[in-house]
Structure formats: C-alpha cells, structure tokens
C-alpha cells in the first residue's frame, strides 16, 4: 500500500470508528449532566450523575427491572445453550437421513416472523397462566435453529478418536457430551452465550406482550416507559439507557475474543 492509500484507509476507519462510538459517548455524557445542559449541547462529563441516579430510582422501580432482566437473561442463556448444543451435537455426530431431514424442517422456523406467532403464543401462554413469569419469557426462544446450526457446525470438527477412546473407557454418550464436547468447544459456547444473552437482554416485543405487571418489566421496557412521558429529562433518561447497556457491553468485552473465534467456526 502506498502512503496516500494508507492515509485514506486510516482516515476512513477512524471516521467510521468515531461515528460508531460517539452516540455511546454522548449517552454517558448526558447521564452525568442536567437535562438543561444536555439540551444546550454539552459534550463534557458533568457532575449530576448522583442526582440523576436519585431521580431515576425515585421515579422507576429500577431494582425490579434490573433484577428481572438479569434473571430472565441468565436462565434463558443457561437452558438455551444446553438444549441447543446437545441437539446440534446429536444432529451432527449421530447423523443419518431421518435426522438430516428433521434438521432441514427445523431450519424453516428461521423464517417464521415473530409477529405471526405472537398472538397464538399469547393466547397459549395466558391459558397456561405463564404471563408475567420467567418461564413465559424464555419458552418461545429457548430453542433456536440458529444456535442448533452453530453447534452442529462446530461438532463437525470434534475429533472422532476422542469419542472412541472415551467409549472404550466406558463413558456413555451423555457423559462424552458433557465431559469431552463441552470443554473442547469453549469458544463456540462463548459465542453462543454472547448472542443468547444479548438477544434475551435486548428483547422487547415479547416481554411487552406478556409482562403486563409492573413488577415483571425488563430494562428495555423501563427505558421505553421513561421516554413516553411528556417532558423528557435527558439526564435520567440517558442514565437508564446507560444502565440498560452496561451489562451487554461487559458480556461482549469479556467474551469478545472467543466470540470472534466461535463465529469463525460457525461460518466455515
């Protein structure tokens, strides 16, 4: 690359990076300032963080929303990862014609728009008394074709020798999955965990449909409720947005490296 081209490439990447980060920077700035200062266009961190926190916690049940979001997302991630990974493993390691056919039918579910199944699901869940419950939150997306496919792809690179050796050692198939497959596929699990946790934490339409009780709401729902007031207090609003963003950003940074590796495995 010539110097000029390099300069162009760096400039382009820098501009795009700044544009990507700026709205998040602005969110943090706004969360630490008075609403008036935000409306005046300040770009400097302020000293109002504590006051905004007091105001937010006084007006909204932040503890409930945070607690619920953590509860729903963690339960969802743990169960979903287990169910989908063992299914992906089963589809790949023990594959035969019948199982391959089932897999291709399952993939069709990827095309089902959520708006289409939302109403029957709502009716089903209200009959089963699952509204406003953790189970109600997780059930519709606990098993996704995307995750199953991801684990099926990664099971392709699971060495057959290990399995044979483990069988000779007297391990049964379930033990082989738990003790051999799970530790070997750490990066796929990390990628799947990042995706599932973020999707669960960020989901909005389904909780909006089933969480009618104020004590069951999630963080995104709380943020959405805040903005629909008549007067927008930018300071507290952006603090709520910040609180809603921190957990997913932390998960992303913790798992970033394995995330990239896991996606690579899945795209291959």
């Amino acid at each position: 690359m010539t110097k000029g081209k390099k300069f162009l490439a760096y400039s382009f990447l820098t501009v795009v990076s700044l544009l990507s980060v700026f709205p998040l920077y602005w969110m943090m700035v706004a969360a630490t300032n008075k609403s008036v200062a935000v409306s005046r266009g300040t770009l400097m961190f302020g000293t109002e963080l504590l006051n905004n926190t007091k105001k937010l916690f006084a007006s909204q049940n932040v503890y409930a929303a945070l607690g619920n979001s953590f509860k729903y997302s963690i339960v969802m991630t743990l169960i979903s990862l287990f169910i989908c990974s063992i299914a992906g493993y089963g589809f790949e390691i023990f594959h035969d014609k019948a199982k391959d056919r089932v897999m291709s039918i399952i993939l069709l579910a990827m095309m089902v728009p959520f708006a289409a199944i939302m109403i029957p699901l709502y009716q089903m869940f209200s009959k089963a008394n699952l509204l406003n419950s953790t189970l109600g939150f997780i059930l519709p997306s606990i098993s996704t074709p995307f995750l199953i496919m991801m684990f099926r792809q990664s099971a392709r690179s699971f060495p057959v020798d290990i399995m044979e050796a483990a069988r000779l050692d007297g391990l049964n198939e379930f033990q082989i999955f738990c003790r051999m497959f799970i530790p070997t596929m750490r990066s796929t699990y990390a990628a799947a965990m990042t995706i599932t946790f973020m999707n669960a934490w960020n989901s909005y339409l389904w909780p909006k449909v089933i969480m009618s009780d104020a004590n069951s709401i999630t963080m995104p729902m709380m943020v959405a409720n805040l903005k629909s007031g008549y007067v927008t207090d930018y300071g507290t609003l952006m603090l709520a947005v910040l609180l809603c963003t921190i957990p997913t950003v932390i998960v992303f940074f913790l798992l970033q490296k394995s995330f990239a590796e896991g996606i690579t495995g899945a795209v291959k």
């Binding site: 990507s20 709205p23 998040l24 969110m27 973020m198 934490w201 960020n202 909005y204 963080m219 995104p220 729902m221 943020v223 959405a224 947005v241 809603c244 963003t245 997913t248 950003v249 998960v251 992303f252």
Partner: peptide, 8 residues
C-alpha cells in the same frame, strides 16, 4: 453499537 439494545 451491536452491544446496545434496540430500545436504547
């Protein structure tokens, strides 16, 4: 940006 929720 992908780490921010859609509502946020």
């Amino acid at each position: 940006p992908c780490a921010t929720s859609l509502v946020s």
